[in-house]
């Protein structure tokens, strides 16, 4: 029992950090309606990782992470610049295109790396149980300055996220904040994907905040709720995967995702009565 707890202490600490960071960003992403961004970012980051491997660095080394990060930041900067006052192609579609191209390239690269197709699968499922204390601490060091930046500029970030049709500031001003927002976001996503895999990150971003948003609209409440839901979901998911001997990433994804559907139906049931 104690051994299990020691074994699980690093993954659980990682879950606390990741649930916090991702559910904060998730609130922004959901409000903006660009659900795809994280999956496509994660795919770009995975592509960057494959690029690093192709250059001869070993998996999990810091050189690979830096290459992956730089690659992601370049792509996301381009994306931030596609923000227009009037959108011809929805931003969501641009994100989808980035995803398709990223995955397509990853597939071509997989042929060049020994066991490359195996690597695509690994990126999909991920495994939070293998996280080390070193990774947890370095994540903490990365997340603190990002949180500070977001606390300083929280008003601007929220204003941009909430603007649907009209921009709150001039377009050049908006773009500056957009770049800052997406850069910090991609740093967090790259980190998180290395630890948990693409779908783990995706679901931790969207699912808890979706549940919170169903019942609350204030940012602070949504953040607190989504953090708690995300944390509870990951821990229960890890426990279930342990019990039933299945991969923990998929277990967490299905658990949290299923919960969203359940809560949506719960929300819809009384809603119908109150309208009619």
């Amino acid at each position: 029992m104690i051994q299990t707890l020691i074994f699980l202490s690093a993954p659980i600490t990682a879950c606390v950090l990741l649930a916090g960071m991702l559910s904060y960003f998730g609130n922004h992403i959901l409000t903006r309606g660009i659900i795809f961004i994280d999956i496509s970012l994660a795919q770009i980051a995975a592509l960057g990782t494959m690029l690093g491997l192709l250059l001869g660095y070993t998996e999990g080394s810091s050189s690979v992470e830096i290459i992956s990060l730089l690659f992601t930041i370049v792509v996301i900067t381009l994306f931030a610049l596609t923000k227009r006052e009037k959108q011809t192609i929805p931003q969501e579609a641009i994100i989808g295109i980035i995803y398709a191209l990223g995955l397509g390239l990853a597939m071509l690269l997989a042929e060049k790396i020994p066991g490359g197709s195996n690597y695509i699968t690994k990126t999909i499922s991920g495994n939070i149980l293998w996280v080390t204390w070193k990774q947890v601490l370095s994540s903490l060091l990365i997340f603190i300055p990002i949180s500070v930046i977001h606390m300083i500029f929280q008003k601007q970030f929220i204003a941009i996220s909430e603007s649907k049709r009209k921009l709150p500031f001039s377009i050049s001003h908006v773009r500056k904040f957009e770049m800052l927002f997406y850069m910090t976001f991609s740093i967090v996503v790259v980190r998180a994907v290395m630890i948990g895999g693409i779908f783990f990150v995706f679901v931790l971003l969207i699912a808890p905040t979706a549940i919170a948003t169903l019942f609350h609209s204030a940012w602070r409440l949504r953040f607190i709720w989504s953090w708690s839901i995300g944390l509870a979901g990951t821990i229960v998911g890890i426990y279930l995967s342990y019990q039933f001997n299945i991969s923990n990433g998929p277990a967490i994804v299905c658990l949290l995702g299923g919960l969203v559907y359940l809560m949506t139906f719960v929300k819809m049931a009384p809603h119908r009565q109150s309208v009619k």
Partner: peptide
């Protein structure tokens, strides 16, 4: 919440 979020999940 947007339909897109539910689709994504």
């Amino acid at each position: 919440i947007p339909l897109e979020a539910l689709i994504g999940i």
